[in-house]
Design a protein around this nucleic acid. Structure first.
Lengths: 109, 109
DNA sequence: TCCAAGTGTCAGCGGTTGCTGACATGAGCG
DNA sequence: CGCTCATGTCAGCAACCGCTGACACTTGGA
């Protein structure tokens, strides 16, 4: 039941902001993320990244003094999505159809 | 920005339990739900249902002294799913395909 | 009209969480 | 080596959250 932590991690607006940045940037160092997050300091960003990593939503790559974080699409996000689909199945047929199609013409920056 | 409340509502395990019950029962009174939730009392269940309702995840129908709650698939759950799909797009192609198919052979208890 | 059932609301408390500043760690560089 | 940079970790505090018991409200029925 790893999705417990994932749901918890997703509940924080700052953490969702971080995920948004990573979704757009592909890979980002802690400092680069902290520069964009103006609501809290670097320490808080570091802690948030740990929560996201433990929850299995992002992955970490170390390179020298830097640590690069990126979205982990094969992590617990799958469980979250699956669970939500099971609960809200009816009426979500359109989302399940529309979203993957919208992904097609998305520009990978 | 209604999905903020939805993410927050989904973060609580008891609330996810309630959603699971409603997903299986189609429609349920507060007392019936509280009977199945053994971890907390009726008061807490009532409060949780309010959170879920304000967040746009469940809908309420009043009938006499009873209040029947049910999943609201057209509520903010769509926004949550859409947002998650946008963030975790890559590698979720399989989920977007597999889940709706898996729903087919789900036994309507 | 009175009472019981179903539910919402509130005060109060205990536990949790998130933020910050200070310190620790570890890698590059002179 | 010694210094600096990038980052993690910790203590402490303030804010928030969830649970419960008591009470209020509404509805249905005798």
């Amino acid at each position: 039941m790893d999705s417990n932590m994932a749901f918890d991690a997703l509940a924080d607006p700052v953490r969702r902001d971080i995920l948004g940045i990573l979704a757009a940037e592909e890979e980002c160092s802690v400092g680069a993320i902290a520069e964009r997050i103006t609501s809290v300091g670097r320490t808080a960003v570091s802690t948030h990244l740990k929560v996201l990593r433990v929850a299995g939503l992002v992955s970490e790559r170390r390179d020298g003094r830097f640590r690069y974080y990126s979205i982990d699409p094969s992590g617990s996000a799958r469980d979250v999505l699956t669970l939500l689909h099971q609960v809200f199945r009816s009426g979500l047929r359109s989302v399940g159809d529309a979203v993957p199609r919208a992904v097609e013409h998305e520009r990978p920056a």
